[in-house]
Design a protein around this nucleic acid. Structure first.
Lengths: 260, 260
DNA sequence: ACACAATTTATAATATTTTTTCGTTTAATT
DNA sequence: AATTAAACGAAAAAATATTATAAATTGTGT
């Protein structure tokens, strides 16, 4: 097998991990034919991005809410940022609309806020936990898309369930992702999830990106929306003038907290 | 079996403990293939986290002061009946099949058993918790149907998601319900859930009813399967000769526990 | 071809996990 | 209560895995 690029290798690691749910550094080294040191640095990076959980000797899929394991510290830390983003997103939503939420944790935060509101909405989502959260509020009609469910992901995957989308008219889609650059648009790493997200983006009249500042300037493996598709870009920190201008040039409305 | 990670091992310990309610260090050492010392340190840690209570030679589930015996006993009783039914259902399933599970708690028990098996299957379900349970096992391809999610129900409702069913070939459907009589067939009370179940029944090559004895002879508001649709009827108590003959007459195979 | 940067590897020092050993404690039995 | 076998805890030893650092490799641009 020819040498892989870093990105390709990490992609492969995720593939293996998704299939097997666990992996050892040793086996990986044999399989991918690189040194263990290299893989450890891969795994370290990937853990920082929340793609997996490191253990001695290997790595496992991260555990998600709903499982008995306690939340990782990282989850909790980023929560504030997600709430800040979700609160701003609320302002865009109007009574009676039909909105689409992906399975991201930011959209889950938005769902938690919606649960407490007195506003009639139809919400379509690909996130299982998002749906479970929203159903608590009887003002909301909650539709969960169908598809493949896999360990390590609370999202539905694949386009099996996308024909539900043909049966509803969607005003706004709220989505997050693993990275955003002006060139690549919104990107994510799970190919199957991206497959579904791409379909979701197509259906939405307007697209709202929910991206915390750490994701700006990064890009992941596969893209599910071009920059031109985006109508609103919501983030948790004030942007640089240059970034701001770039958004303005493309007619994208930016929402971020006012200067502290 | 390859060496487990610490996390995995402790997870397994909890699994065993939850099932057996008690465990000995010695047996664990044999089962998990690590030294007793290692396990003792595991148990010590886990006790600190409140996951279990240490004893000489082993560990037990922690007992909570306010535990109400009556309620939990009754719960368990009901659960046992479901487990008895689910275990019999297992025998019908063959490697490589595609099965359909509804959102009933009996089907959820079946899912829990399947989670522990080493058998490759495709499982399509309308139960959210059923899907979450099954995804833990990588041998299983889990497909969740889409649809409306409502408060108080962990089932998907309505036929929105039923076109996923057109894309898979289903060998067996396992379903429960609120009532069964020979005249009305299988019945349930939630009309929207029934709407989806009806579609599911149509798709399955063979239909297996999972009904505890208390439901036999009762009938609910709407029917989702005629008696003639049923291939197997699984229950938790021995039937009367009359009931048995009635099933036989219609060519329905009955599975129930052998006389005590 | 050269220098520069990025990536990967080798190696050695650390750190973690597991087992072994052994004296002590506990529980069961006489 | 004395005896005995099993279970325990502490600490050293062994086995693995990780990190840091420097060296080697590869790719890039000039």
């Amino acid at each position: 097998m020819s040498k892989l690029f870093v990105t390709e290798r990490r992609h492969k690691i995720m593939e293996i991990l998704n299939k097997e749910m666990r992996l050892t550094v040793k086996r990986l080294a044999g399989e991918l034919d690189v040194s263990e040191v290299t893989l450890r640095s891969d795994l370290k990076e990937m853990e920082k991005e929340g793609l997996l959980r490191r253990t001695h000797g290997g790595a496992m899929l991260p555990s998600y809410p709903g499982e008995e394991v306690s939340f990782s510290a990282r989850e909790k830390q980023n929560k504030n940022e997600k709430v800040i983003i979700a609160q701003q997103a609320l302002d865009i939503i109007k009574e009676g609309q039909c909105i689409l939420l992906d399975a991201s944790s930011t959209a889950l935060e938005l769902a938690k806020l919606l649960k407490q509101k007195n506003i009639k909405l139809t919400v379509v989502t690909s996130g299982i936990y998002t749906a479970l959260e929203l159903r608590e509020n009887p003002d909301l009609t909650v539709i969960l898309l169908g598809g493949v469910v896999r360990k390590g992901s609370s999202s539905l995957e694949g386009i099996l369930g996308s024909n539900i989308l043909d049966q509803v008219y969607v005003d706004i889609m709220f989505t997050s992702g693993n990275g955003f650059t002006f060139e690549t648009g919104l990107t994510d790493f799970n190919v199957y999830e991206v497959e579904l997200k791409t379909e979701m983006v197509k259906k939405a009249t307007s697209l709202v990106a929910l991206m915390d500042h750490s994701k700006i300037g990064k890009s992941s493996i596969s893209s599910f929306a071009r920059t031109d598709d985006i109508s609103y870009f919501i983030t948790d920190q004030t942007l640089t003038k240059e970034q701001y201008n770039n958004f303005e040039k493309r007619n994208i409305e930016v929402l971020c907290p006012v200067e502290a």
